[in-house]
Amino acid sequence: MAKKRKRSSDAAAAVEKPDEFAPQRPERTLFGFKEKPADDEEAEAEPASEGEEDAAAAAAAAPFRNKEKVLVTCSRRINYRYRHLMQNVVSLLPHAKKDSKVESKQSKGNALNELLELRSCSSCLFFECRKQKDLYLWMVKSPGGPSVKFLVNAVHTMEELKLTGNHLKGSRPLITFSTNFDEQPHWQLVKEMLTQIFATPKDHRKAKPFHDHVFVFSIVDDHVWFRNYQISVPHNEIDKVDKGGLDKMTLVEVGPRFCLNPIKIFGGSFGGPTLYENPFYVSPNQIRALEKRKKAGKYAKKVKAKVRRKMHEMENTLEPDEFAELWKGED
């Protein structure tokens, strides 16, 4: 008897629990979610209670809502490693849409712009692989926004066994930037774009309400380095860390890792006027060509040295040896 009662009380607790922390969704209307007069959003915008009827007033007073959608795609003939990197990025961004590969031609910009419009995406990550070894990443804001082209270096995918962390799929990441992002305008722009693309929109339907991983964007040596760590912190409640838990917090790397070297910033999406050009950038093709030329120089140097030696010998010929004839008569 006693057992039975206990179980029923357990069940009741289990029923109660989910409501406890499930984020309450605002009521849905024809034009999107009805904004609830939430106390935390009051600070930035007036309560939109009467704004529902008056569309113009609502537009002016509507609180900010992030409706970012990111199209993630890649060029044809992409390397498997880079494809895995792309898939990892997709798994990190619940607000991403995948699309089929795009031919990497001169006219890819137009095709991609069209695709963005079709999929109603506001930004795009395009992984362009050239020569099966060089990966370029286009980071684009869709209709009119700027686009940044990066060269991707030092790629490590999530599949690597050295990266031992794991986190919820779709939980919203904390994003940390190094302060040197604010030093120059082009870095500011890159920071804004990274924030918009990599931050999962609040209350996105695929997002989970907890924060258990953190992204690192850091500028070292004029490259943007990306890392993704799992946060493990001792806690019993869901809205409070244990006492002293913040000091005991540890991070485990989840991956992927990559390093972005900005090449150019354009004014339009996939094109437009060039706003910035990296003065230090050397294309990998040039680097390879230089290396080749260095190697080729080895032989040329040898030939040159030989010629020089010959010339030298011709110029100062040896005097005839006085002992040359000495042993001639013996045999």
Binding site: D40, E41, A43, E44, F64, N66, R172, P173, L174, I175, T176, F177, S178, T179, F181, D182, T195, A199, P201, K202, H211
Partner: peptide, 11 residues
């Protein structure tokens, strides 16, 4: 914009 939209921290 509310910080909870961005969740960004500078270091």
């Amino acid at each position: 914009v509310d910080w909870r939209h961005k969740l960004t921290i500078e270091h």
